[in-house]
Nucleic acid binder design. Structure first.
Length: 157
DNA sequence: GCCAACGTTGGC
DNA sequence: GCCAACGTTGGC
């Protein structure tokens, strides 16, 4: 039985929001074009892993809900689609550069957990998302951080 | 809208 | 292999 891991995944809500995930039940996490983020998805994510769903460029920006990994990594087909904004001509379909996972909806916080709150919460000092200049869109979260974050909000489905 | 931080690209 | 230029992210 593999150890469950925890993650934080960023999305701009005007592109794809937690409400979109609630509506869709699950989605493929396409469009990641950063090697470090890809490596986490490709090498470390397992079905059942917990995901903090973060809204960037939002009011307020912060954690809006929970998701879970429901499918392990497979090629991101949008990299082969010339009409897709994330098209990457260097990604060979026979040896894809970019991978994605599928995530499923778990729940939404009644009130989002704003970034500013996370910054003020003891025990979260080392979360990557609160570090200045942190641009990683898929990042690991420790079990302790996960528990603290869940204690900050009230979840609804 | 601004711009700091960061990752990537490409000339050398 | 270095590093300046560039483009993007994303908080403010």
């Amino acid at each position: 039985m593999p150890t469950q891991r925890y993650w934080l995944m960023k999305s701009e809500p005007n592109v794809y929001s937690i409400a979109d995930l609630q509506r869709d039940s699950r989605t493929c996490w396409d469009g990641v074009r950063n090697y470090q983020a890809r490596n986490f998805m490709r090498d470390d994510m397992q079905v059942g892993d917990g995901v903090l769903f973060y809204h960037s460029n939002a009011k307020p920006m912060g954690i809006y809900g929970l998701a879970e990994v429901v499918r392990e990594s497979y090629p991101d087909h949008t990299a082969f689609d010339t009409s897709d904004p994330h098209y990457d001509p260097k990604s060979d379909p026979a040896d894809p550069t970019w991978m994605m996972v599928d995530v499923g909806y778990v729940g939404m916080f009644k009130e989002p957990l704003p970034l500013i709150t996370l910054k003020q919460t003891p025990g979260l000092e080392h979360m990557l998302v609160i570090q200045r200049g942190s641009r990683l869109s898929v990042q690991p979260v420790t079990p302790d951080e996960w528990q603290i974050v869940l204690g900050l909000g009230e979840l609804t489905t």
